[in-house]
């Protein structure tokens, strides 16, 4: 019984001692070192032949592309400024032209207006003259009528009062003299 237990303890102790720190098991060192060297050489070749040239190239290319874009952007900015200046000039010219056109149009309109006013004035004057002439005619004819009526009336009165003295010419002369007076 006692020896069994002791054996068991011994076994456990053996098992506990065997692993210890496996890192200090020197029999595996050559193996680890060999595979480490292999891994380092392989990784070094991948790093120096593929990884670094590729990523370095990509970063350089990106740098070039970005500076290229910056140059282009500056160019575009200059173009935009030129375009703006041109636009300003064009705008100024257009404004000046518009003002000239407006002034000219105004002058033309004024001229037309003056002409129309003059024409209208002339027409009005003509009409006025015509009307005056018509009025004069009417007045003339009215005087004539009055004279005729007066002459007739005077002749009639005279022939009725003094039939012997019927001198129409004398009567007419007298009436005319009377009307004038």
């Amino acid at each position: 019984m006692a020896s069994d237990t002791l054996n068991e303890i011994a076994e456990v102790a053996e098992v506990a001692k065997a692993p210890g720190m496996p890192q200090l098991d020197f029999s595996t060192f050559p193996n680890q070192i060999f595979w480490l060297v292999v891994a380092m050489v392989v990784t070094f070749f991948i790093v120096s032949k593929v990884i670094l040239p590729r990523i370095g190239g990509v970063l350089e290319e990106r740098h070039a592309v970005i500076s290229n874009y910056l140059v282009q952007a500056a160019d575009f900015k200059k173009q935009a400024e030129t375009a703006e200046a041109e636009y300003e000039t064009a705008l100024k010219e257009a404004r000046a032209e518009a003002q000239a056109i407006a002034a000219e149009t105004k002058a033309n309109i004024l001229k037309d207006l003056d002409k129309s006013v003059a024409l209208a004035d002339a027409e009005i004057a003509a009409k006025t003259a015509e009307s005056e002439k018509a009025i004069a005619d009417i007045r003339e004819s009215a005087v004539d009528d009055v004279r005729d009526v007066a002459t007739t009336a005077a002749s009639d009165i005279l022939s009725a009062l003094m039939p012997s003295v019927s001198d129409k010419a004398a009567v007419k002369k007298a009436v005319t003299a009377r009307i004038k007076g």
Binding site: T28, N31, W35, A39
Partner: peptide, 13 residues
């Protein structure tokens, strides 16, 4: 384990 034996060191590298 000899120096050239493929081990778990080999696998994980």
């Amino acid at each position: 384990i000899y120096w050239y034996t493929p081990t778990n060191v080999t696998l994980w590298f």
